[in-house]
Amino acid sequence: MSAKIVTITSGKGGVGKTTAIASLGIALASRGQKVVCVDGDIGLRNLDVIMGLENRIVYDIVDIVEGRCRLRQAMIRDKRLPGLFLIPAAQTRDKMAVSPSDMMRLGDDLREEVDWVLIDSPAGIERGFKNAIAPADRVLVLTNPEISAVRDADRVIGILEAEEKGSPSLILNRVNHEMVKKQEMLSPEDVLDLLAIDLIGIVPEDKSVLIAANQGAPIALDKESRAGQAFRNIAARMMGDDVPYMDLEEQGGLWKRISKLTGRN
């Protein structure tokens, strides 16, 4: 096997990176892919909680890097999906415990084990972020339609371009259609206009995301949720499928324009 390594990052915190990683992991694994989610937020680990695996942690990423366990020992198998694994972050260490070249080595080892490696980047643009993007083949920048989040995303895209990581793709999370209509929120078009990168998915705001996260059952498992559907669509696009954008509510016009903007129909 030779996995694709995908890192999700945002600059700003609290925009939904961890939820997105968990959801994409589940969506890919549901399609029969072998996936490992890596929590890059050493010292502030969350991904285990969102995935509902916190009480199964024995070894973590720092244990692998420092040679206290074998790679497979630290890969926690998901309760629901046999092809989904988690490598948790260490809670008692900090970002300096791992270096970008440690991450490259880890990435290379993981390539042999699975189809997809999804890395959850911590907020910020410091060491933790550098670690998370070091091994990435592809970077997905996630943002909310808020001016502060978009500005941070712009900064992150600038750094990725400067580091010659290739142009990242955009996930626009928590879009509230009603608010966009009333012009109380930036529209997806505004965000795309400023950031000028490829769009890979738009996720509508959905209360059930929070409820699902608190129950350790990521949203992609919920067949009813629109946000869950959006993440399943992103997973399909990551695998190369041409999936149309969801027609959110009655205002088809906006989404058609976006489809045009991104060259999808």
């Binding site: 001016i147 500005r151 712009d154 900064r155 371009e161 400023l194």
Partner: peptide, 23 residues
């Protein structure tokens, strides 16, 4: 395009073929 967080300082003229984003 100059993205947020980029700072250019130059002892002369500057021509940008692209946008200068907020920040």
């Amino acid at each position: 395009t100059l993205r947020s967080g980029t700072r250019i300082e130059h002892n002369g003229h500057v021509v940008v073929m692209g946008d200068v984003n907020p920040g």
